[in-house]
């Protein structure tokens, strides 16, 4: 789609906005609908859009596959690591209360924050990874076949 000039300009503008929105959804999930998963999807959409318009090679320069692999594992580990941390503090797995033993809901707040970040990272990574995997295959049909 290299020849679609308008698309390229708008995409460049949009990508930033989408990423911003993803961060909003990520960290505002406590108050409104949304959370790590939705944020992850939106974040991934930003990269996918970029990739669709500018080509996979371009987006892979920004967000190289090896990093995607690390990230998608990292997210899960952040989530589980939060739980392990609770265990190290002498509480049950994922007992966020342990982060602030004297103020229950504070602990819960930080716990939720950490795990949502974990979810967000993994989901972003996975969605991008899936996109890369599919995009790595040569299509059978051209643009005009639709």
């Amino acid at each position: 789609m290299r020849h679609h000039l308008i698309l390229r300009v708008i995409t460049k503008l949009l990508v930033g906005a989408i990423i911003l929105f993803a961060f909003y959804v990520q960290f505002h999930g406590d108050f409104s609908p949304g959370g790590g998963f939705q944020a992850g999807v939106i974040m991934a959409v930003a990269f996918i859009l970029y990739g669709l318009v500018f080509g996979v090679a371009q987006v892979q320069r920004v967000f190289p596959p090896w990093l995607v692999h690390k990230l998608l594992a990292l997210g899960v580990l952040i989530y589980a690591g939060t739980g392990v941390w609770n265990m190290l503090l002498g509480y049950e797995f994922l007992h966020y209360g342990s982060f602030a033993p004297h103020h229950m809901s504070h602990g819960q707040h930080s716990g939720i924050l950490y795990v949502e970040v974990g979810v967000g990272i993994t989901v972003t990574g996975v969605m991008v990874a899936i996109f890369y995997a599919f995009a790595g295959r040569r299509p059978q049909l051209g643009d005009d076949d639709w």
């Binding site: 090896w66 692999h69 690390k70 998608l72 594992a73 990292l74 899960v76 580990l77 589980a80 392990v84």
Partner: peptide, 11 residues
């Protein structure tokens, strides 16, 4: 559970 992502992370 941890081993799965750890393997991927270590790569």
């Amino acid at each position: 559970f941890l081993a799965g992502p750890l393997i991927v992370l270590l790569g």
